[in-house]
Design a protein around this nucleic acid. Structure first.
Length: 876
RNA sequence: GGGCGCAUAGCUCAGCGGGAGAGCACUCGGCUUACACCCGAGCGGUCGCAGGUUCGAAUCCUGCUGCGCCCA
């Protein structure tokens, strides 16, 4: 800290208004360079790369949650003295971005083909400059402490070079290859999709049974996609199926076309399903493709890239969904339809980008051979180089990486990294590395396709740090410390970063920890979706409740790996917490709370002082432990509870009494108030950075809590007796308040009271506090006790006599005592039952038995006491 | 079809072998000189069902029912 501490501000505004100051605070932090990482630093590194949001996207609650988590982690590490790099950026989102720009063109009556490839790509860049990346501004509103000087984009030169480099290496190692296979094809996006870009849902369709062939040589097959029969090249049955044995090896006539197709026997046919015979369309079904390969069947593609039928005849040019009923109708007319079932529920794949029904299609594509890469990715987690939080999710990770299919990486798009492969006039294939010149001359062309966006995203932890160059950043900040993301993209992304990171960095894992948070849901636990209309916009919360409240709500709901329900009430509660902290700080400052002087020796302090200091120490240890375990919900609860229930509800009230004493007592209290508040503000800062910044600066007069030291445990021995006595005071006060409430005494009304037995329980020094907090006053000369209550504390019973200046509500008193009696009786019964069981006393650990004995005795004494009180009550 | 997870207060969730908890909601009383975005007091649960292990089970095991997710 460079500035000299000035005197603490004591004139904070009476209310915290986030919207008025957040933006200014944030820009101040950025300008001060707090978030800029230094690769030359001696400090230990702490690195997080931001999961790159989609360039077309805007901030949603899932981002807000993930960003809150990352910001909290990095802010704490920065305070702990780490050289923190939190690196932001975006991905180019091939399909999504191309869709956006194509829609824009369509509104002008143009298609990308009208522009041509080069002009179209230029148009996308223009779109990016003008409209892309609004999420980056939204991140500033959340308070993300990212290093803007290192912002990256997957299409940048450096990152593109990384893409080309790894492609070349994998190609040369034969881990990238080209092959014709059935792929998932989106007829709307007109591109191939990988397995995980397809979402399956149970949809209503139809199941049509069709008779192929005639007479004895006929066979019935069932299908949900009748139109594909045009491309059938066989019928398959199980080899052991007696019903069809005589047909195997023969041919049947394919209806409508008259083409003759063989009946083949294949082990993979399920004789139990339908008729036990299946049509085989190798060009339009992955299973059929495999059957086709095994039996050397021809593959007949019957649809074009738009999903229109290409077979000559009456169906030519029909869309696949028009062709389906048309084909069924034609078959029916020929008497070929044996059965029809609709609706028929079956699993249908949809494009994850546009929801169009995916068409399996035979196609020549580029693939990554994942087996060796995926094995390494699994091993890194298996041997603990990378730890998954929560650990239960590691199992899902293994299931995925251990059974991963080869990855289709080519996309029939224009926006993206073009595949660096050239084809020559004589079928040459040349893969071109970063500093190599592509072949020139007649007949050489580059592969028209681009790479899957996830291909470049998979390089994110290394490419953003400068790889393949041996950069200072890479040396300092790799492997990254934590990757934080939703469990829903564990496969999409995490597994792929692991594969590429390990491969490119010679087995060095891309991250030490993977933290997986849950999904955001609405108040009823339903998934948020536009169609359901239950989406909460984080920007709305930022406007109305402020960034701190939004962040606290999200962090407070973040239990590792489990989903989180959100509602406006939650945010309002968080806002209330911020206000509470604000008001408490204001009170403390108004009363001279300070960190400018040290806390006096413990011997000079009161029980209350020692108790709150010890509690703050305990809180600190707990918060540290919870941070290390990514337990954001629990650490927020711990901070909330300490701040509200201990500091505000009890210590501030006790402090009022101590300050009223004046002199050294008041000064000591001001120091304790200040030092505890200072710790709390620093502990809260990673989660609620804005309000803590304003308050901390006002309290300490220092430059910024962003660069303050993270608090450390004082090391003082905890005073267990002070804790017992303060808790005794709390119980005494609470019991008096309860009695008052039962008796209908107004909260503000002071009541004359006489306490006895206080010395015996060691609370002599606390009488003033009890009197103040329970709204009592000195008995005076005319004291006439009209009611009394007894409070059992550790070491004895305190009797409180009250002058209620009127009649006592005997019924209320009886009710209260009866309730106490019931509780005590239940307790006694439970304890006595246990102690009466010799098996318990023999087998249970001695400390457990002792504890039950103590409880039993206390309950028995309580019953005796309460019964006596009840008997002494006048009849009502 | 395969796999995984969850069922605890009205709602959302923590607890995961020895006294049922939190936030919100709700009831009652209060503008007590930091705070009504507040203060004080309170109500509320055979911890999904059925078995088992154990001296002891919300917590461990088995089965069932319901819900959710992932993969085919």
């Amino acid at each position: 800290m460079t500035e000299t501490p000035t005197s603490p501000t004591t004139d904070l505004p009476s209310a915290w208004e986030p919207s008025a100051v957040e933006a200014e605070l944030y820009e101040g932090w950025v300008a001060a360079g707090y978030f800029t990482a230094d690769a030359a630093s001696d400090k230990p590194p702490f690195t997080i790369v931001l999961p790159p949001p989609n360039v077309t996207g805007s901030l949603h609650m899932g981002h807000a949650l993930n960003h809150t988590v990352m910001d909290a982690l990095t802010r704490r590490r920065r305070m702990q003295g780490y050289e923190v790099l939190w690196l932001p950026g975006m991905d180019h989102a091939g399909i999504a971005t191309q869709n956006v720009v194509e829609r824009q063109l369509a509104s002008q009556g143009l298609s990308r083909h009208d522009l041509g490839r080069e002009a179209f790509v230029e148009r996308v860049w223009e779109w990016k400059t003008e409209y892309g990346g609004k999420i980056l501004d939204q991140m500033r509103r959340l308070g993300d402490g990212v290093d803007w000087s290192r912002e990256r984009f997957t299409m940048d030169d450096g990152l593109s070079r990384a893409v080309q480099t790894i492609f070349k290496r994998l190609y040369d190692s034969e881990l990238i290859y080209r092959a014709e296979r059935i792929i998932n094809w989106c007829p709307r996006c007109r591109t191939a999709l990988s397995d995980i870009e397809v979402e399956h849902s149970e949809d209503e369709g139809e199941l049509v049974s069709i008779r192929y062939g005639d007479g004895d040589a006929s066979i019935v097959v069932a299908t949900t996609r009748a139109e594909t029969m045009l491309g059938d090249t066989a019928v398959a049955v199980h080899p052991d199926d007696e019903r069809y044995k005589h047909l195997v090896g023969t041919e049947v006539a394919l209806p409508l076309t008259g083409r003759r197709i063989p009946v083949v026997a294949d082990e993979h046919v399920d004789p139990e399903f339908g008729t036990g015979a299946v049509k085989v369309t190798p060009a339009h079904d992955p299973n059929d493709f495999e059957i086709g390969r095994r039996h050397n069947l021809p593959s007949l593609t019957v649809m074009d890239i738009k999903g229109n039928i290409t077979v000559h005849g009456p169906f030519e040019g029909l869309d696949r969904f028009e062709a389906r009923p048309a084909v069924v109708r034609a078959l029916r007319e020929e008497g070929r339809i044996v059965a029809e079932k609709r609706p028929y529920l079956h699993s249908v794949g949809h494009c994850s980008r546009c929801d169009t029904v995916v068409e399996p299609r035979l196609s020549l594509q580029w693939w990554v051979k994942v087996e060796p890469l995926a094995r390494a990715a699994g091993d890194a987690v298996r041997d603990g180089r990378t730890q998954v939080h929560p650990p239960e999710l590691a199992k899902r990770y293994f299931d995925w990486v251990d059974n991963m299919h080869d990855w289709t990486i080519s996309r029939q798009l224009w926006w993206g990294h073009r595949i660096p492969v050239w084809y020559g006039p004589d079928d040459q294939v040349v893969c071109v590395g970063p500093d190599e010149e592509p072949p020139t001359g007649q007949g050489w062309t580059q592969d028209p396709d681009v790479l899957d966006t996830w291909f470049s995203s998979a390089l994110w932890p290394i490419s953003t740090l400068g790889w393949p160059a041996e950069s200072a950043d890479l040396a300092k900040f790799y492997p990254t410390s934590v990757l934080s993301t939703g469990y829903d993209i564990l496969f999409f992304w995490v597994a792929r970063m692991m594969m590429f990171g390990l491969y490119a960095m010679d087995g060095q894992q891309p991250f030490d920890h993977v933290y997986l948070h849950g999904l955001i849901r609405d108040a009823q636990g339903k998934k948020m979706s536009k169609s359901r209309g239950n989406v909460i916009d984080p920007l709305d919360w930022l406007d109305r409740f402020g960034a701190d409240a939004t962040r606290f709500t999200l962090a407070r709901g973040a239990n590792p790996g489990s989903d989180m329900a959100l509602a406006e009430e939650w945010a309002a509660g968080s806002r209330n917490f911020g206000t509470k902290l604000w008001n408490a700080s204001r009170f403390a400052l108004m009363n001279g709370a300070t960190t400018a002087v040290p806390v006096p020796d413990r011997a000079e302090l009161t029980d209350a002082d020692r108790w709150i200091l010890d509690s703050a120490d305990a809180l600190l240890s707990e918060v540290d432990k919870l941070f290390e375990g990514f337990q954001f919900a629990k650490l927020c609860d711990a901070l909330y509870h300490f701040t509200w229930d201990l500091y505000c509800d009890w210590y501030l009230e006790l402090a009022k009494v101590q300050i009223a004493e004046g002199g050294a007592r008041a000064d000591a209290t001001r120091a304790v108030l200040g030092h505890v508040l200072d710790k709390v503000l620093r502990l809260l800062h990673p989660v609620i950075p804005f309000v803590t910044e304003v308050l901390w600066k006002a309290l300490t007069g220092k430059e910024s809590v962003v660069i303050a030291d993270w608090p450390t445990v004082s090391g003082a021995e905890r005073d267990a007796q002070a804790k017992v006595r303060v808790e005794g005071v709390q119980k005494l006060i609470t019991e008096i308040r309860r009695f008052r409430a039962d008796q209908g005494v107004k909260p503000g009304q002071k009541v004359k009271a006489r306490l006895s037995g206080v010395d015996a329980v060691g609370l002599t020094a606390h009488q003033t506090a009890v009197t103040a907090l329970a709204r009592l006053e000195a008995p005076g000369d005319e004291f006439a006790a009209s009611a009394s209550l007894e409070v059992s504390l550790a070491g004895g019973t305190v009797t409180v006599e009250l002058d209620l200046s009127g009649t006592v509500d005997v019924a209320a008193e009886r009710k209260r005592l009866t309730k106490d009696l019931t509780v005590a009786e239940k307790e006694l019964a439970q304890c006595a039952a246990k102690l009466g069981n010799p098996k318990f006393t023999d087998k249970a650990p001695a400390d457990v038995v002792d504890k039950i004995r103590v409880r039993r005795d206390a309950a028995a004494a309580e019953i005796t006491r309460v019964q006596a009180r009840l008997e002494a009550l006048p009849a009502s």
